[in-house]
Amino acid sequence: MNVLLDNLSLFREGFIGTLELTGASALVAMVLGVIIAGFRVSPVPPLRIFGALWVTLLRNTPLTLLFLVAFFVVPKVLFPDLDSFLLAVCACGFYTSAFVAEAVRSGINTVPLGQAEAARSIGMTFTQTMSLVVLPQATRTVVPPLSSIFIALTKNTAIAGAFNNVDLFNVSKTLSNDGYDIAVIFLWITLAYLIVTYAINGLFRLLEHRLEVAR
């Protein structure tokens, strides 16, 4: 019981760390995911190929491997001075963007082709067709899978804790090194993760409700 009370500030730091990692990675994943999904349905073949490669490569690579590349290869050959938070956000964000892209693409596919044809026939460019006509109608279908993806992302950020980031997983390591009972530490850590994932769950349920009403 006193694991929590004795280390309240450490727990808070880890909790905020997990929140920040999840939030920043989710933002990166969302933006990149929508762009990559756009690439995958674009009329320009090189963009389609790039999109397909991005998804195939990132979705099929273990996240731990991506972290190893981000922390040991990227600083050596590309950017030597990036801090570990940024590297972790990139690894988690890029990885998750592949899943977001596929969810968005499945949403795009549910919008009848005629909608895009009508948009093109009044002179809209591809980007306008996507952003003004197709994506707004795809949103409703994309929301439920996105909630699963972001919950998975929350749990995946734990890997960042093993790479020099202070998050909940990192805190559990520190505390067990300090000699506290592992079972009790894990109980509290799990509860903290549950708070984050359950909040995401609720947020998306709210969003789904909103979109239902708007129709």
């Binding site: 009508a118 026939s121 009044i122 809209m124 003004l132």
Partner: peptide, 29 residues
Amino acid sequence: ARLRADVGMVFQSFNLFAHKTVLENVMLG
């Protein structure tokens, strides 16, 4: 796209933008 703007098209299945009101449909382009 510019050229298509000068060519009006009416489809068999109407293809009105389902998420926009009638007025917005006619305004959007």
